[in-house]
Design a protein around this nucleic acid. Structure first.
Lengths: 226, 226
DNA sequence: ATTTAGATTGTTTATTATACAATATTTTTG
DNA sequence: CAAAAATATTGTATAATAAACAATCTAAAT
């Protein structure tokens, strides 16, 4: 009985989100072992005895993306006895928001970004975990402008609005969005303009890493056009 | 190495909150084993191989309080290597909101309600877990009227307001609170009145268990008087 | 009948959210 | 060089919600 209790295994799995090619993407690895061999999965690994859960998650994140100091949050712990077909593995899921320009991902047949809107079949309960991370990201976006964690350091307001629209899965009104966003603490207007566009260049903005004022916590509401 | 990874133990610990004697109370058990022998702790237990985390939490809850079908939510997973002084125990913390009238707790020297404002020294990181559960309860209260989970089936608006004030840790305006609360879906006015008071009896209300309209999600904001 | 303690109720103002379209700027094209 | 094209930028009016604030009502006790 006592032994029975002790044979859980515990892992961390990380939903790594970024914006790439105008779409929300998640980093997936192709499993090269059973179970679910050759299926895609979110990156993960066993928690070592010497590290806490955050550290384990950061380690896995760094292994896969070589990024540190980014938005990483514990998401939920999934512990269904049948989630792993062979042994009892409880996983503490995290999610990370990163800038694609910060990432050094050597994509290959076994490690690649996938649009969250076009996910391949996934191992374990990883589909559920990704969906939950999207829900949580939406909740965070209602509280504070975490979207800037997904954007490059310098971004246009149109890029930011597109990020919001992708995460919230609805269209926002341009004027209301801009009115709202410019009141956000930390957003700083630059005297630089985008160059890539073939038409009128857009002003670039950046986020200073300021603690966000709780008064402005509710950022984009669910039922509005922004 | 592989064996090293596998020797985590995983438990669930549950912050059980109720309102009792006009105060927010948490159910604590006195430990009769080392470590932390004779210290108070929140109820918990090992996760069995056959049950998922919710089931483990519900089992522990039922063992201690004999209640079922109440508000139970996964809170956070705590996995610091040093949180348990002897072995590596990762705990998935839950919190429950219950009605004191529903509970059959045989309080004793080893099992008792404690005001959250007057907690005794606690085992492990349980103080941190309780504090986090209070923070989460506040967040939930901003989203929906979960406070009714803590109140008896029939309650007065004054009782409800007191519950809010305890959880939000601030005074609310009586008129604004009532205006707000009566727009809540599910709240039903009864043709019954409180009897205990020695002065003017107050009308009783109850909550019908309706799915709450997301339009009315934001319930009591942080920075207001209600 | 009066007192007492708590219950109940409304209005005004400020803030925030929403709906909605015309103008400005730069590049490209003819 | 003028016109067209594409995207960026901006404001106002209305609706909804939040906030501040105090007098009256009611049943029990005296």
């Amino acid at each position: 009985m006592f032994n029975e209790i002790k044979t859980h295994e515990i892992t961390v799995d990380i939903v790594i989100l970024t914006i790439k090619n105008d779409a929300l993407n998640v980093l997936l690895v192709k499993r090269n072992n059973e179970p679910f061999k050759n299926k895609w999965a979110i990156p993960g690994g066993y928690v070592r005895m010497s590290e806490n859960l955050d550290e384990a998650a950061m380690r896995v994140l760094k292994e896969k993306t070589n990024v540190e100091n980014i938005y990483l949050e514990q998401l939920y712990t999934f512990g269904d006895p049948l989630r792993h077909p062979v042994s009892r593995v409880i996983t503490c899921a995290y999610f990370a928001l990163i800038r694609s320009e910060d990432v050094e991902v050597v994509t290959s047949d076994d490690l690649a970004w996938h649009r969250v809107s076009e996910l391949p079949p996934l191992a374990f309960d990883h589909k559920e975990i990704i969906e939950y991370s999207l829900k949580r990201t939406r909740e965070r976006l209602e509280m504070c402008p975490v979207a800037y964690q997904l954007l490059n350091e310098k971004f246009t307001l149109t890029e930011m609005q597109k990020a919001y629209e992708m995460i919230m899965e609805k269209k926002l009104d341009k004027r209301n969005f801009r009115k709202k966003v410019i009141t956000t603490e930390g957003l700083r207007e630059l005297n630089e303009f985008s160059k890539s566009s073939s038409k009128r260049p857009a002003r670039l903005y950046t986020f200073d890493n300021i603690k966000l004022n709780s008064k402005r916590a509710h950022f984009i509401k669910k039922g509005s056009k922004g």
